[in-house]
């Protein structure tokens, strides 16, 4: 397959073994991949561990859009970004982890902004349960004083 690969195309392989053919300009929007390509330590197929096919497809979609729309109006791209990041919590966290790990700055920016918007008006209690669910143990065992804000909702 790699022999018939067009020039300037790369294959990205997700953690669950699925392969995606993407233009090099799109793939190198990930700094981590860019470094691999520049150091020539990548063959045509680049493994992307920790990122499954589902998430990898989303990241590629985002990068493609940003690559194509350089000439497009910034407002259009903004609309695309805000729609793109508008996903369930689970996908959102997987995307953030992938964008962080693969160092895709534009995507990470859009995602962090989205999370900030999401949690801006939430109560402390809400944040603890939803955003830091995994850290509940830490919170419960810490001697931090639960103050009156816990039960108030800010919406």
């Amino acid at each position: 397959m790699s022999s018939s690969l067009e020039k300037n195309m790369l294959i990205l392989r997700s953690s669950d073994g699925e392969e995606f053919i993407v233009p090099e300009v799109v793939a190198v929007m990930s700094k981590a991949i860019k470094n691999m390509v520049e150091d020539e330590c990548a063959s045509n197929t680049i493994p992307v561990p920790n990122v499954d096919a589902n998430i990898l497809a989303m990241v590629i979609e985002f990068c493609k859009k940003h690559d194509e729309s350089e000439a497009e109006a910034a407002s259009d791209l903004k609309t695309f970004d805000s729609e793109f990041v508008n996903r369930g919590q689970e996908a959102l966290y997987d995307l953030i982890t992938a964008a962080n790990f693969r160092d895709v700055k534009e995507l990470l920016d859009a995602l962090c902004q989205n999370v900030a918007e999401m949690i801006k008006g939430k109560s402390v209690h809400h944040i603890r349960i939803q955003f830091l669910g995994y850290q509940l143990f830490e919170i419960l065992t810490s001697n931090f004083i639960w103050n009156i804000w816990c039960d108030r909702d800010f919406d």
Binding site: C112, A116, V124, R128, L132
Partner: peptide
């Protein structure tokens, strides 16, 4: 990343979130 996210919040939210953990 948490720092990156919190950096985008208004002061009002930040003073509240000091008591998260």
């Amino acid at each position: 990343l948490i720092a990156d996210i919190l950096c985008r919040l208004p002061v009002k939210s930040l003073s509240r979130f000091k008591s998260v953990s």
